Every structure is written in C-alpha cells, then in structure tokens.
Simulated scan of single mutants.
Amino acid sequence: MARKKTDLAIVNRSFWPQSQVIGEGLLQFAEQAAQSGSVCVITQAEGDLAGLLASKGRGKGVEVRACKAYTTSASGVVKRIAEALFFMFWTFISLVRVKPANVYVSTNPPVVVPFIVAVYCRLFGARYVYHLQDIHPEAANIVVPVNRLLFKLLQIVDNYTLRHSNGIITLSEDMKRYIRQRSDTQSPIHLLDNAAFEVTPVPFAQRTKDIVFCGNAGRLQRIPLLLKAIRDYLHQGGKLHFTFAGGGVHASDVKALADDYEQVDYLGVIPATEAAELVNQHKWALLPIDDEVTKYAFPSKSSAYALSGTGVLAVCGEDTSVARWVTQHGVGVVCAPDQEALVRSFFSLERKSSESFMINAESRKKLLIPYFASELYRLTVPNSFRGWK
C-alpha cells in the first residue's frame, strides 16, 4: 500500500472567500491542522484561490486543489447535479494524488462526493469523518421529487458512506436520530451547531428597524407564503417595515414586493459581516422553514440571529427541531405556517416594544467560528495523530 503523502484533506465544494461563514470556518480548521501536519483543501473556486490566500496572509502551509465553479444556489437542478458529478471525479483524482491519511467531507455536494471519499478511504486504508449539514436525498426530494428507484439507490449509497465512516457530525437531535435509524450506522455521531460571525448585540429597545430576513430565499424557506402574508398585512394597514437581504430562486419575487411597497426593502446579496450588522439593527428576524425538511436540515441563519440578540420569528410547526430550538433557548416566538396566523403575528409584533433575547455566554461561544473550527479539528484528527507523525 502506498505511503500517505498528506495528513489531512478537507473536501467541500464551497470555501473561503465565496462561502463566507462555512468557508472561514474550514479555513481556520485547515490553518489549525497545518500547524502540526500536512493539509490539503479540495474545493471549487472562481479564480486563483492559492494566490488569493497568499496575498491575504492566510492558509499558511495549506495546499489547495481547486477546480472552477460554474453554478450557484440559484442555478437549475440539472446544472447543479452535473457539477456535483464533475466535482466527484475531481475529488477522487485529487485524493489519489495527495494520498491523505484522514479526510473531512461534508454534504456539499451531497451523497456522491462523500461516497467517493468513502471509496478512496476503503481502497487506500485512510479514515474519514462525514459532516451532514443536511441529509440527502430526503432534503432534495422535498424540492424536486426524485424517481423512487434513484431515491433508494442514493439512500443505499449514502448509508454505505455513513456505516463506514470513523465519525459523523450533524446539527440536531432529530437529524442524529434519523441518520441512525436510516443507516443503522454504529459510527459515533456528534452534534455541532452552525457557526456565525461575532457581533456585539444592540439592546432591543435601541434597535431602529423592524423585521429582517437575511439568507437564502430558496425553495425550502416558505418564501411564497411569507410574501403573501406581508402583502396581506400591509393591505390591512400594518406599520412594520421589512428588510430582505440575500439571493436564491425567489429573489426576483422579493424584489417585486419591494418595488410595490415602500415598507419593504430588498438589498440583494451582501457580505456576511454586513449581514450580521444588518440583523443587529432589527428587532425581529424571520426564520421560515418547511416542516418536513427540519428532519433533514437546520437553517444556517439561526446562529447569526441568536448571536445578535434579535428576536426570532420562526415560521414552522410547533413539533419541529426549529420550534424547539427557539423555545428552549428563549430566542423568540413560533408562528404556524399559515397566512392568517402570520399576519396576526406581524400585528402582535407591533405591540412588543421591549424584549430580551440574549443567549448565555456558554451558548454564545459554541456558535462562533473559532469554536466551530476547533471542534472540526478535535472530531476529525485522532488523538494519536495530534502532533502528527
């Protein structure tokens, strides 16, 4: 068997700087590991990522293998599938060339790339940790129904990856329970929250703006329901002002709403640090999510909302992981995914002038990027390899 050339490979289609939060977390993870071993990042980028890292004084000792990125979250499903397959082949070739002893891989892109990592590790005697930030094909099936035979095949493939992993990382107890039930894996499953940028919370009473939605206006965020409710609320004389920031397949619908109403602003896609400050100016933040998908994913914007101290208005069923998270942490209120109920909630928020949604210091620490990066290092690199060989 060929001797390993690299101690750790980090595989993720999105990376710094395009993916600002997860990308920064993975970069800090890579930088921490590179202090004591050889590290390679396998990803996609729009330009010369290695050169950009060097120019910014980042990624010291980190090897970069990046192929060109062609799609975004707003691209069509067929294009995204084609690019995922392309990245799968790129990943396998890169792994064979760098020969890592340990691999970190996430669900970006899902199923096929983690599977090819599992195949490499089985062939070359390496170990890998699988980070499920969402569970596929179930999450995808909610957006676009997947052929039943293909659905079962993808489940079989992903179950193989889960069963042979040295460790699994995911986001919620619901996801952990489903992973165990679906795959019957005996691998240890760890929970790790989504990370967010640090922000100094503004006291609720000093916030000057009303309600913000900041993130991907995608297929699972109940955007059509949200926009209908806002129109209804404003037609009934509602006084609150709404701010939207971010892209996604429903971005044009959000812009159309902003064009029709002075009480709605659409800022487009903005940098993550600016988004954090934008949320910090608002009293309330919208967190709409499809109930079914909460079994297989958890909204990434939740951490940024919690760190800011902004009140969360979760639009989902009460028996979901998101609703339980809002209630258990005391970070806001939950509204049923119903147009009339949502309109009533908006009017109710008009009367709430002073609230406190600050999370405690320990919970706050666990939502920050440095903690996220350190946990990835702790969970991915075995104790016997700390300090490497």
Rank of each mutant, 00 (worst) to 15 (best):
E83H: 03
R207T: 01
A196S: 12
D174H: 05
S75W: 00
P145A: 12
R127D: 11
E292G: 11
R351V: 10
L85I: 15
I135L: 14
L226Y: 04
V103E: 08
R122D: 11
V293Q: 05
R58S: 06
T43W: 08
I168M: 02
E83V: 01
A34T: 07
R219E: 12
L132K: 03
G25P: 04
L367H: 07
N12Y: 06
V334K: 04
T185L: 04
V113M: 03
N141I: 06
W325C: 01
H241V: 09
D290N: 14
A285R: 00
A272S: 13
E31Y: 12
V199R: 10
F151R: 08
E318Q: 13
Q155L: 13
Y104V: 02
A272K: 05
E173T: 14
V41T: 11
L149V: 15
S374T: 09
F115D: 04
Q221T: 09
R219T: 09
A195I: 07
V96D: 03
T161G: 07
E318F: 10
M1Q: 07
S55C: 10
S38Y: 11
K60M: 03
F87A: 08
L52F: 05
E83C: 08
R180C: 02
L240A: 02
R351H: 10
S300M: 08
A361I: 11
N216G: 07
K239Q: 11
R207S: 04
V333W: 09
G247N: 06
L150Y: 08
D184H: 14
V269F: 03
L192I: 13
R231G: 01
N194D: 02
V117R: 06
A205G: 03
R324D: 12
F197Y: 15
T6K: 07
L52R: 13
V39F: 04
F124T: 11
E355W: 00
A205T: 13
A45T: 07
L287D: 08
N280H: 03
V269M: 11
S75F: 00
D253A: 14
S300I: 06
G167Q: 09
Q221Y: 07
S300G: 13
F204G: 06
N12C: 15
S353M: 12
R182S: 14
T91D: 05
R386W: 06
D260A: 15
R180N: 02
T91K: 03
V322T: 10
G246M: 01
K295S: 13
V249H: 10
F151V: 02
V315L: 15
R177Q: 06
R122Y: 01
F92S: 11
D134P: 02
E63D: 13
P114N: 04
V312A: 14
Q328N: 11
G248A: 08
G332T: 10
V279E: 00
H282Y: 04
T294Q: 11
G25C: 09
L171A: 07
H250R: 04
T310P: 05
Q206V: 02
E46I: 11
H241I: 08
A306W: 05
V199E: 01
D338L: 01
N383I: 09
R127K: 15
S300Q: 13
